[in-house]
Amino acid sequence: MTKKVALWIFLVGTISSSALFLWLTWDTHRQVEFLANVDKLSDDVVAGKRVFEKYNCNDCHTILGFGAYYAPDMTKVVKRIGVDGIRYRVKSPEKAFANSSRKMPQQNLTDDEIEKLIAFFTWVGEIDNNDWPPQDSAKRLTRSEEVMVASAGLSPGAAVYQRRGCMNCHSLQGKGGSVGPALDKVGKRLKQAEIRRYIRDPKAVNAKAIMPAQKDLSNKELDEVARFLANLK
């Protein structure tokens, strides 16, 4: 191989890749209009993005998987913890993470800023991004019932508890979140039917509850997880 051939390898490699890349960039711009629902990209959403940047949220959290890995991903946060869950955590992180081994700073956001942030997260949650992240995947959740059936001999309720992300907020034997109360002895306080009713619609039982209503659970899943929890004494 001569130096001239080497030069040609360089030129052809660079130019072909650049041309392909620029063409794909043009096409991506075109398709993102639909994939990211640009028609719903309101002023509030943009203001929310500015709030997200103003408080440097992205240097602890990831969004669409990018950022720092010190705190949970924000892509599907609305679906995962609900808008009340977001309000509570951002407004009073010192309370929400009082028992957590990792803290979130109190940055004194105004109520208006929090609402804008929620608008931003709501819009981001609807981006068609190939079903990422897996822990919040809709496909994965429909599979949770299969798992429940598969582990029926052991404890289907425990499977629901694990698959449906209860431990994002609650803990058992010290493992799990600290936003909601630990559930180790919940069966002492509440009966199975009460637990069932609470999970389906917390506000109907306690107007001040911050737990989001679990509307995705099937009746069968709800029965099983309530039975599992009622037996924790």
């Binding site: 890749s17 392909l20 794909l24 398709q31 994939l35 990018f66 981006i127 991004n129 190939n130 990422w132």
Partner: peptide
């Protein structure tokens, strides 16, 4: 250059 695409899997790109 085109390898940049490995960052575009989950961001809402085609």
């Amino acid at each position: 250059i085109v390898g940049t695409g490995h960052h575009y899997y989950w961001i809402g790109a085609p």
